[in-house]
Simulated scan of single mutants.
Amino acid sequence: LNSWMSLDDFKYIFFWEYLHRLLGRLLGLLFLVPFVVFLVQKRFTPQLAWPLFGLFLLGGFQGLLGWWMVSSGLTELTSVSQYRLSAHLTAASLLFVALVYVPRSIEPGRVVGQVKPFHLWSAGVLLALIILQIAAGAFVAGLDAGMGYNTWPLMDGAIIPNGLGVMQPLWRNLFENALVSLFLSIYGSITSSSSFNFSV
């Protein structure tokens, strides 16, 4: 496996992984130190302090998931688990949503026109579809699914290719069958983009 990889190739990959970890820790410190200082100086109201502390916890949880993901490729597998990769990427997406939501909730911008319940509902559905699509993309990456079928709209010569349900029990196909993973990712992206056009 990976017989092409030399020591220099491994060092290159390790460098970016190590830099990634250092950057995560640096961001945590850059958030925590001012947060504690401002908290001691009582510049925060409780209504603001708790959401900010929640952001810090989400960031720490993201780092923990990253370690958990990488460890799967060191002990159990020769590559990282697609389950853990998806959890890591999905948590990062939720953290991004929270980073946008918390500042917006402090001082919401002026709304032009009337916001109807349909707009809120459609925006929520679209956001959920996007996050699901990101999670599906992680399974595609973790299973190297994109390496097997690189044509569209036909996959293996068919709209609905053979082999979508070959694993038993059937639920395993959703998470461990590379063909199913790629199929769902492709048509999930079409659904998400169609939903965006519908919502606007």
Rank of each mutant, 00 (worst) to 15 (best):
L85G: 02
A136R: 08
L132Q: 14
F96Y: 11
P161E: 08
S122A: 15
Q168D: 12
E176L: 12
Y83S: 09
R43D: 02
F183M: 02
L65P: 06
W171D: 01
L22T: 09
L57V: 03
L179E: 04
P153V: 05
T45C: 10
G60Y: 08
L126P: 09
L58N: 00
S189H: 11
F31D: 04
G63Q: 10
A158F: 08
Y187E: 05
T78W: 12
A87C: 06
L179C: 08
V140A: 04
F38I: 03
D9G: 13
E176Q: 02
V111T: 08
V166Q: 15
A136G: 12
G113Q: 02
L32M: 06
T191L: 02
Y187K: 09
T75H: 15
L74C: 05
A123D: 09
L89N: 11
S185W: 14
V200G: 14
R84L: 03
H20M: 06
W50H: 11
S199G: 05
D156N: 08
E176D: 05
G146P: 07
N162G: 14
F56R: 03
N177M: 04
M69D: 00
L99R: 11
L170G: 06
I134F: 01
A123I: 03
F10W: 13
S105Q: 07
V97T: 13
L170T: 13
A136M: 13
T45D: 10
I190D: 05
P161L: 14
L184W: 07
V115C: 12
S3N: 11
P46Y: 07
A158I: 05
L179M: 10
